[in-house]
Amino acid sequence: MVSAIFGLPDQVSVFGLDVAPFAILLTIIIVVAGFIVAHAIRLLVTRYIGTRLPIDARRTTGRMIYYGVVAIALLSALGVSGLDLSGLFIAGGFAGIIVGFATQSLFSNLISGIFLHIDKPMKIGDPVLITGKLPEVAGIVVEVTALSSRMRMFDGTYVRLPNSDVFLSQIRNFSTAVARRVELTVSIAYKEDTSRVLGLIRKSLDETPQVLVEPAPDLYVDKLADSSVEINVWCWVPFSVWFDMKKKLVEQVKHVLDANGVEMPFPQRVVYISRNEPARPDPGKEPPLDKEPASVGVNVQEMSEHR
């Protein structure tokens, strides 16, 4: 009926199939409209909605939306065309399954990259420690793309991490705090007065300008170890000087204890040999026949050397 109004034939042959001209016209309109709508949505996402994303992730997201809308328009157009495309759909379904399995990790990294940009657990230039899903990775964030994150390790090497693994891992960001705690463990001999040693270390920290007054330094006896008494020294310093102060404070505490005669022992071990056991003869040397083997005992003590 519509064909008669416009003076068109009722059926035309397309690839050996009879199709109504109006169906062909409607198919063309849907395809053209699909491309126009896809282009408009991509511009909307890249220029307005996706402004929080970096430029590469924004473009990738825009392309995905564009091709998705175009695919929906093409399928809709084929649905109204009247063509029997059941065989093509079956083949396309198998191809889609194969492509889906092949690109599963790709899309997983892409989606994880988008969520990393939205959540922002780390940004370029941040020193971070990533644990959990990945083996322990520590370094400076260099780049976060749509598919992967690149880091410069503290030894100068670079590592590329898939975004899906980074997103599922624990990210410890060291740059988000103004101050960071320096933790030291000092071992002293059992003969030393712990109160005196704590006072010496605390005085040294109080005279260090970079050590913060609030939170105050915390010093306490932590453990009675096999060969020494272990003291934990905790103090807070500005984040920008944490690495330098950690190295400096170790040397500073060592110098203070040495200057005041505080012994920091090496591991000690006391070995006792019973006096009732006869000494074992040397296997390469036969004992003299005119003397009976004597019973000997030794008390050996490995004393620690003073630093």
Rank of each mutant, 00 (worst) to 15 (best):
Gly92Pro: 06
Lys291Gln: 13
Arg196Asp: 11
Lys291Phe: 06
Asp126Asn: 15
Gln11Ile: 12
Gln268Trp: 00
Leu134Ile: 08
Phe22Trp: 05
Pro21Ser: 03
Glu251Cys: 00
Ala146Asn: 11
Thr51Val: 14
Gly50Tyr: 02
Thr145Val: 04
Gly50Gln: 03
His255Val: 12
Val182Ser: 14
Ser240Asp: 10
Gln268Glu: 08
Glu143Val: 05
Gln252Lys: 15
Ile171Phe: 08
Ile30Cys: 02
Ser164Leu: 08
Val159Glu: 08
Arg172Met: 09
Ile30Val: 12
Ile72Cys: 05
Val99Gly: 12
Asn276Gln: 13
Asn299Lys: 11
Ile49Leu: 14
Ser112Pro: 01
Asp10Arg: 14
Ile98Gln: 02
Arg269Lys: 11
Arg275Tyr: 11
Asn276Ala: 14
Thr131Arg: 14
Val270His: 05
Gly139Pro: 02
Val142Met: 13
Arg58Phe: 01
Gly100His: 07
Leu168Trp: 13
Tyr48Trp: 14
Gln170Thr: 15
Asp10Ile: 12
Leu75Trp: 03
Tyr66Lys: 10
Tyr272His: 15
Phe35Ile: 07
Gln11Lys: 14
Phe243Asn: 10
Phe35Asn: 07
Met1Arg: 07
Ile55Lys: 09
Glu192Lys: 01
Ala179Trp: 04
Glu214Ala: 06
Val197Glu: 01
Leu147Gly: 02
Met64Cys: 15
Gly297Ile: 00
Val270Ser: 07
Ser227Ala: 05
Lys203Trp: 02
Pro54Leu: 00
Met264Phe: 05
Ala23Pro: 02
Asp18Trp: 06
Ser86Phe: 08
Leu224Arg: 13
Val19Trp: 00
Ser148Trp: 08
Val298Trp: 02
Ala57Asn: 09
Phe15Thr: 08
Gly96Asn: 07
Gly92Met: 10
Val270Asn: 04
Pro265Ser: 04
Glu277Trp: 03
Pro9Asn: 03
Ile231Val: 03
Gly92Asn: 08
Gly87Thr: 09
Glu286Pro: 06
Gln170Ala: 15
Ala71Pro: 00
Arg307Asn: 13
Pro281Asn: 03
Gly62Met: 09
Leu184Asp: 02
Asp244Gln: 15
Asn299Tyr: 14
Leu17Asn: 12
Leu129Pro: 03
Lys203His: 11
Thr145Tyr: 03
Leu44Gln: 06
Ile273Gly: 09
Leu257Tyr: 02
Ile124Trp: 04
Leu184Gln: 06
Gly96Leu: 04
Lys254Leu: 02
Ala102Asn: 08
Trp242Leu: 13
Arg59Pro: 02
Leu129Tyr: 08
Lys223Val: 14
Leu134Met: 10
Gly297Tyr: 01
Arg160Gln: 13
Asp56Pro: 01
Thr208Leu: 09
Ser105Leu: 06
Arg52Cys: 06
Val300Phe: 13
Gly34Gln: 05
Val271Lys: 12
Val32His: 03
Ala294Pro: 04
